[in-house]
Write a protein that binds this DNA or RNA. Structure first.
Length: 730
DNA sequence: AAAAGCGGTACG
DNA sequence: GTACCGCTTTTC
């Protein structure tokens, strides 16, 4: 009798390709896209229904019943499921794990779901007695708040009001007491923005907006605009267009670019329900936003990489800001690229998508050149300010003090004396990148990685930047016993120290992951920069994006050379992007800026190209080089990665994997080779690079690999994964 | 990935 | 006998 029960197909979060069939109670509502709690083997798991009324090929007595259906309405709609099926196929990742990756963490677990009341809001009472308002004459704070709430037109989140009006709690309570406003429960996780007036556009901006408006259906556009050219305003104009038609907008930004300023701008511009998804939000809040977006309650969703998988039934526009940013590519598990998934999503939904950057990825420029994307360019800053001049300081045979050369110090001084701000960029945190024995050449290694330990806190601590292990710094060389240990090279801490001794009267602030560990620290430091209290800024990548520093007139970049001679073919592209982005921080208002790059390779052709032709000139040369070497975007790559505790296992597995490939003229296989850092966190890593001249050749091989590799005996000894379109070969 | 099954063996 | 390993098999 049990075989008469309906059978559903479930995607289970395990590293297995394929789905599993289960029996379900005929009386229960169990639609495609709903989660189910099941027993898989002996353990309980949460899976997602991907098909119903299935004719199972599995013996009826092996089918288990679903323990519980967790959602009576689908959590994944048809469009999102289709996108995720595509994603699983494209990245050759198991469907169940793909769906689990898309889901907010709170929904991956079993949980009796209680609708959240985390988000409370206030709205104006329409028929409030006139005398109540008249009584506000001696309460300016209350007047101000009431006006703000009325201007919004609908409910405003409590948190939003507190952020805009510090200490608003009491006046809000007073207004409620007078019956002028009332508390309402907002859809969980969402906040409500207030309508703002758009600023006048420059004619360049207006041209782009006008051209964007002529597009219909799937319309990918690249907006290549120099820093300060006002790309955000263009996004906002298009968002307004789309929101006015009653559709939803999905806005993606890298974690580092998703600043409070950007979110505030959004809030004070659109009288819309906004869902914010970023790493600082709790699991519960993320789940709330996800559900609200899926129910069509959110008008705008703004978030980082994983936000691309938010269900949005009325989606009308996708924006990918800083589209070149490496954080759009996930580095483990489902190794997806959110920009590429976004393009697929826009295509499926037949809607426009805007990719914006001052330094577009070479892949994106190539697509624009090939006519796949409409290419819009903004070469002038919206303020009319000049772009800074970028110049080199040759540091060959020059002594460095804390990473700084004398000429750079001398360039900085006048800017500080004039009361302006200076930023020093170094892509290395900590005090120094190695602790080195002056007598025998030994340097303190990480015991779990093939990498030196980084010195932190003025020679006191050693930290491995690859596995996170830390130890006390030794006082004598472990190899020869010498006491002449020196910290070699410079990181942010050392640079900050050197600057303090050169400019003792100037306040120096350090911006890196270590100094930002405490919550709110970044905001506090940025406030000091905005007020002019901080004059010297030292930092990593973190300083490169999303911040406006009105008084910044000089930028120094200490180590561009690392980007010129890396094993990674994308290193020069990253170097050019970072240099251009940090340079864009300088001279934003009416003050002209200057940028100095320290280098030992002033004749390097890519550096010369970047200085002479700016990022577009560099990109042209870089694309020519990629074409000559058949590297992306002119060739297509997939990386088979393997790691294990013993060195030989990854190699054996990859060698066996390489055997299974039918190598032809247009398909090449490189390796197996040890990864550039062969041992990391105690595991030995190696990989096999697959190169195809056409993408269509690559995917059939990967399709077969997906099943074949799992059956290789050697596969059981390693952890392996397929990385399609790898971003870094490390 | 995780848990269970299998076969070998050291133990006192 | 049984407690404990390393290795293989299975997961609807």
């Amino acid at each position: 009798m049990e075989q008469d029960y309906p059978v559903i197909r479930v995607a289970v979060p395990v590293p297995l390709y394929g789905t599993f069939d289960y029996l379900v109670d005929p009386a229960a509502s169990a639609p495609v896209g709903a989660r189910v709690q099941i027993r898989f083997g002996r353990r309980p798991l949460v899976g997602v229904i991907v098909a119903t009324d299935v004719e199972s090929q599995v013996a009826p007595d092996k089918l288990k019943p679903v323990l519980r259906v967790l959602d009576d309405t689908p959590l994944f709609d048809e469009a999102l499921l289709k996108l995720l099926r595509w994603t699983a196929r494209y990245y050759h990742h198991p469907l169940g794990d793909t769906l689990a990756t898309a889901l907010p963490a709170a929904l991956r677990r079993t949980r009796t779901d209680t609708e959240s009341t985390r988000n409370r809001g206030w709205q104006a009472v329409a028929d409030a007695p006139a005398e109540a308002e008249a009584a506000l004459t001696r309460a300016p704070r209350q007047q101000e708040l009431l006006a703000a709430i009325r201007a919004a037109g609908n409910a405003v989140a409590h948190g939003t009001l507190l952020a805009r009006f510090p200490g608003a709690q009491r006046p809000l309570n007073a207004l409620a007491e007078r019956g002028l406003i009332e508390a309402v429960a907002l859809p969980g996780g969402l906040e409500t923005g207030t309508a703002g007036t758009p600023p006048a556009l420059t004619s360049d901006q207006q041209d782009v907006v006008d051209r964007l408006r002529t597009a219909s259906g799937f319309a990918p556009a690249l907006i290549e605009g120099v820093t300060g050219s006002g790309k955000t305003e263009i996004y906002f104009q298009r968002m307004a267009d789309i929101l006015a038609t009653g559709r939803q907008v999905l806005f993606l930004a890298p974690e580092i670019g998703l600043t409070p300023q950007l979110i505030d701008r959004l809030r004070s511009r659109f009288a819309a329900a906004i869902g914010v998804l970023h790493s600082q939000r709790s699991d519960g809040e993320r789940a709330d936003v996800w559900k609200a977006a899926g129910a069509g309650e959110a008008d705008i969703v703004i978030g980082t990489r994983s936000a691309i998988f938010t269900p949005m039934p009325r989606l009308g526009l996708i924006i990918v800001d800083e589209e070149h940013d490496g954080s759009y590519k996930q580095g483990d598990g489902l190794r997806y690229h959110a920009r590429d998934v976004a393009l697929k999503r826009a295509q499926d939904a037949a809607i426009p998508i805007l990719l914006g950057s001052a330094t577009p990825a070479l892949e994106t420029l190539h697509n624009a050149r090939a006519g796949r994307f409409v290419h819009h360019k903004l070469v002038r800053r919206a303020t009319g300010a000049a772009l800074p001049a970028i110049r080199l300081i040759d540091i060959r045979s020059r002594p460095l003090d804390g990473g700084l050369s004398d000429p750079l110090i001398n360039r900085i001084r006048p800017h500080l004396e004039a009361g302006n701000q200076v930023m020093i960029f170094i892509n290395r945190r900590g005090f120094a990148p190695a602790l080195f024995c002056h007598d025998c050449g030994w340097s303190a290694p990480c015991h779990r990685c093939d990498a030196p330990m980084t010195v932190h806190g003025a020679m006191s601590r050693l930290v491995c930047h690859h596995c996170g292990s830390t130890e006390k710094a030794p006082t004598v060389c472990a190899s020869c016993g010498s006491e002449s240990l020196i910290a070699l090279g410079a990181g942010t801490q050392r640079v900050a120290g050197a600057l303090r001794s050169h400019f003792p009267d100037v306040a120096v602030a350090r911006f890196d992951r270590d100094s930002m560990a405490r919550k709110g620290r970044l905001e506090a430091q940025l406030a000091d920069v905005a007020s002019g209290k901080t004059q010297l800024l030292v930092g990593t990548q973190m300083l490169a994006k999303g911040h406006d520093f009105a008084r910044l007139t000089c930028v120094g970049v200490l180590d561009v050379d690392g980007g010129l001679f890396s094993a990674d073919f994308r290193a020069t592209e990253h170097m050019a992007q970072v240099v251009t982005q940090v340079a864009g921080r300088a001279g934003r208002a009416d003050r002209p800026g200057e940028v100095w790059l320290q280098t030992r390779n002033p004749e390097h052709p890519m550096l010369v190209r970047l200085l002479g032709g700016g990022y577009p000139g560099f990109a042209e040369a870089a694309l020519a080089e990629r074409e000559a070497t058949a590297l992306p975007p002119y060739g297509h790559l997939a990386l088979l990665r393997a790691e294990a505790h013993e060195q030989r296992y990854p190699h054996d597995f990859l060698a066996a994997a390489a055997e299974t490939i039918p190598l032809g003229g247009e398909l090449a296989c490189w390796g197996p080779v040890p990864a550039p850092m062969a041992r990391r966190a105690g595991r030995y890593r190696a990989h096999l690079l697959l190169h195809a001249s056409r993408r269509a050749l690559l995917h059939p091989v990967l399709d077969r690999w997906q099943t074949q590799l799992a059956e290789l005996p050697a596969a059981r000894r390693v952890r392996w994964s397929i990385d399609v379109d790898p971003q870094d070969l490390l």
